[in-house]
Design a binder for these strands. Structure first.
Lengths: 199, 199
DNA sequence: CTTCTAATGCAAGTGCTTTCGCGTTAGAGT
DNA sequence: ACTCTAACGCGAAAGCACTTGCATTAGAAG
């Protein structure tokens, strides 16, 4: 149901409208209080007609997912230097910032709820999740942490940061005060689990 | 603004309509694919008029939160026997079941998103969260786990189970196949963190 | 038992989201 | 350069969530 990248006509106009809509979504997301957007608003701001947006993306959720996947693929790298603690700290801090800035939470929320929708979950967000899982595996392999799995990283780093950002949202200014300290604690938890499993 | 329990007129009719609406919400939630409900649907099923529901609860989110708080206060105890591992296992398994059954996820989602809304978060879900935090603290105190905080329980048990249930939703039958194994691993993670902090 | 009033029922109305049919445009193939 | 057609713009209409004013009912108080 989501936007297929290998389109029959990926030409100039289609790409332009997609970029315009994506840009409008990011702008609106940055000013949205609850992380939701309305497609008519997107249409008005982007200059693209309502009907076009409804035809291409069908729902607001699918549009958010499309923007989220485009964003994550661009920025947000997963380091794999062999130093597990340093890698996790770098990744966690990056995630904490991107999730706490204005629009970031809405994008992550779109990914989560997309994965929860059986129709879209496997086909849409599944590929992206798989890519990240592979990168996590590489990170763990280089560090020789065979006792850990990518799921551990998700559970110990990703989920807590996501929910924490969700609960902090609206109660804190966007300058992320104590998030770094939280990241450090979360990374230490991973190290603790690793050592515990080694005996 | 959520339902205030200390009403000026808590009498029979008000209680009846509240119960009818709550029951309808639980039924609809059990059949809802995405965990959302529409107030007109609730009105139709409960036999209570739309306008009444809109006046009392204002939004669907607030209604969900009201049902969630009523549910959590009834069932879902937090054990505190002094055996941390046993307490966490019992609580985690209970949480895993209640979160994986049809309507359970929507209720937890309501709690989360309510906490994210600055207008409702502190006043509404805050009290409930505080109560549970105190129980967690008691659990940790009885077990002598002074190195852990209730936030650790949230991050290491609650959040992973919540998101896992969210992603499993719709892809698995409601008989919770591998959730118990996950709970055990999550509890072990807590133990690992505890031991790590003790040196 | 009577009075008072909050809570509910009722029905019309408002506004926003979403869809549909049709004419037009612009990129791709030859 | 010419054709073909997917993608787009346009306006109107349909559908649904949500609101509002008023009449009615049923607990609560005296």
């Amino acid at each position: 149901m989501t936007q297929v990248t290998g389109n029959a006509r990926p030409g100039g106009r289609t790409a332009r409208t997609r970029d315009a809509v994506h840009a409008a979504v990011r702008e609106l997301l940055a000013t949205s209080a609850d992380g939701t957007i309305s497609l008519p608003e997107v249409a008005a701001r982007s200059g693209v007609h309502q009907a076009t947006i409804y035809r291409r993306w069908r729902t607001a959720e699918a549009l958010l997912l499309d923007v989220a996947m485009a964003d994550v693929n661009d920025r947000s790298p997963v380091p794999a230097t062999g130093d597990l603690r340093a890698d996790l700290l770098a990744y966690g801090r990056h995630l904490a910032v991107s999730v706490t800035r204005p629009g970031g939470l809405g994008l992550l929320r779109a990914l989560i709820s997309a994965a929860a929708d059986p129709a879209v979950g496997l086909a849409g967000a599944g590929e992206l999740t798989e890519q990240r899982m592979e990168r996590f595996q590489t990170m763990l392999d280089r560090a020789g942490a065979t006792e850990l799995t990518p799921v551990d990283i998700l559970e110990l780093i990703h989920f807590p940061l996501y929910v924490a950002a969700m609960m902090l949202h609206g109660q804190r200014p966007p300058d992320v005060p104590e998030m770094p300290g939280n990241v450090e604690r979360l990374v230490d938890n991973v190290i603790a689990v690793l050592e515990h499993r080694r005996g």
